[in-house]
């Protein structure tokens, strides 16, 4: 159990819903959800998340650009990249730029637990 605040960034409501359910089951608070880069930028400051699940393909930005923004605005927030198979190059770049972990979709409670453990949660 943790009382860490989590933000979920994914353009699919379906994905946000599933991930949100997994996280709430584990006792986390989902402080905000965002479906686009702009929405993430708008909500980031107010919700002040400890952990961000970041989809790397979004309608108006890619995860790398957003990662950069998040690091500047909330340097203490830990970012976990999420993506379906096939985006290994961009994932690698994200990890090089300071993302803590990578979860490949489809999500499962076990994979999410593994990602959270890697953050020391």
């Amino acid at each position: 159990m943790s009382n860490a605040k989590v933000m979920i960034v994914d353009d699919a409501l379906f994905m946000r819903t599933i991930l949100g359910t997994i996280l709430r089951d584990k006792g986390y608070t989902v402080a905000a959800e965002a479906a686009s880069g702009i929405e993430t930028m708008k909500k980031l400051h107010a919700c002040d998340p400890d952990i961000i699940f970041l989809d790397i393909i979004l309608p108006d930005a890619n995860g790398i650009q957003l990662l950069d923004f998040i690091h500047k605005m909330k340097p203490q927030a830990k970012v976990i990249l999420c993506s379906a198979i096939g985006q290994e190059a961009i994932v690698k770049k994200g990890l090089d730029l300071g993302a803590r972990f990578y979860v490949q979709k489809p999500f499962s409670p076990e994979k999410i637990a593994e990602a959270l453990e890697s953050l020391g949660e």
Partner: peptide, 26 residues
């Protein structure tokens, strides 16, 4: 945009374990 929609569909279908849809979207 097209690319992103195909990508999203693939991820969603894989999550639902609809492998045939995920393969086609892939």
């Amino acid at each position: 945009e097209l690319f992103r929609h195909a990508h999203s569909l693939k991820g969603m279908a894989a999550t639902m374990q609809y492998q045939a849809i995920a393969d086609l979207a892939h």
